[in-house]
């Protein structure tokens, strides 16, 4: 009768919050791939001999990684000393399906000496950023209050059709990106969701060209590294 004490894991403890996986390629590959289902479904069902228990896990995945084993592939500061094979093997630890579920991919470049040496007074504080974030989130909560969801990341296909309408100009941009970057259907809907968020941050009801292009720009790193 063992195996009945089912308890939730880190992803459920991160419900409505953040799951941060530092140095993503260091994780066991199969452990990362376990996240595929929960990242889409927002809940996880654990089945054991005599019980099946569902826990909610609506979390935001934030991961960080180096581009290669030595860490300097694509860097402007130092040359990468890894062989092509090494880089490929390193990057292949992150599977395509996981990458496809990550809406925002961003490159963090090293900081120049001038920037490091500048005084910190001009830099925006967290509270200012949080103020904008809160306003954008309030718009979302208000918009989706009848649907039982809290944010753009939870939009269902039906709601995307309703709230992520694009003008013909935007559609053209998205179409050319879709073909050029070889995006998946999931990536397409995810770009629309991110564009909706960027428009919300701008306090704009309509998704404009700059919003959709910023959203597309967050998806092109996998072409750079994983191709």
């Amino acid at each position: 009768m063992e195996g009945l004490f089912l308890s939730h894991g880190e992803i459920s403890l991160a419900h409505h919050g953040v799951l941060f996986l530092d140095e993503l390629p260091e994780f066991n590959k199969s452990v990362i791939d376990v996240l595929r289902g929960p990242l889409e479904e927002k809940f996880v069902t654990i089945n054991r001999l005599n019980a099946s228990i569902t826990y909610p896990c609506n979390f935001m995945l934030v991961a960080s990684m180096n581009p290669c084993p030595c860490g300097y592939y694509g860097s402007k500061i130092r040359d990468c000393t890894c062989s092509e094979k090494q880089i490929k093997r390193y990057l292949s630890k992150i599977s395509g399906p996981i990458l496809d579920r990550i809406d925002i991919q961003v490159e963090v470049q090293g900081v120049t000496y001038q920037k490091l040496n500048s005084s910190a007074t001009k830099i925006e504080t967290s509270s200012k950023i949080r103020c904008r974030v809160n306003n954008a989130r309030k718009l979302q909560i208000k918009r989706y209050k009848n649907y039982g969801i809290y944010s753009n990341s939870e939009l269902t296909p039906m709601l995307i059709d309703k709230y992520c309408n694009l003008s013909s100009n935007c559609k053209n941009i998205l179409q050319s990106a879709f073909e050029k970057l070889g995006l998946s259907a999931r990536a397409y809907t995810r770009i629309l969701k991110v564009a909706r968020t960027i428009a919300d941050l701008d306090n704009s009801e309509e998704i404009k060209i700059q919003h959709i292009s910023e959203a597309i720009q967050y998806r092109n790193l996998d072409r750079k590294y994983w191709n």
Binding site: L24, L39, N58, M60, L61, V62, A63, S64, M65, N66, P67, G71, Y72, S75, I77, R78, L99, R101, I102, D103, I104, Q105, V106, E107, V108, Q109, G110, I129, R132, V133, A136, R137, Q140, Y150, S151, N152, S153, E154, R190, K193, V194, R196, T197, I198, D200, L201, E214, Y218, L221, Y225
Partner: peptide
């Protein structure tokens, strides 16, 4: 990018040296 991610609850990957 993190601001956008936080506002909409989007997943985010940071790559860098």
């Amino acid at each position: 990018a993190l601001e956008v991610a936080a506002a909409g609850g989007h997943n985010c990957l940071l790559i860098g040296s």
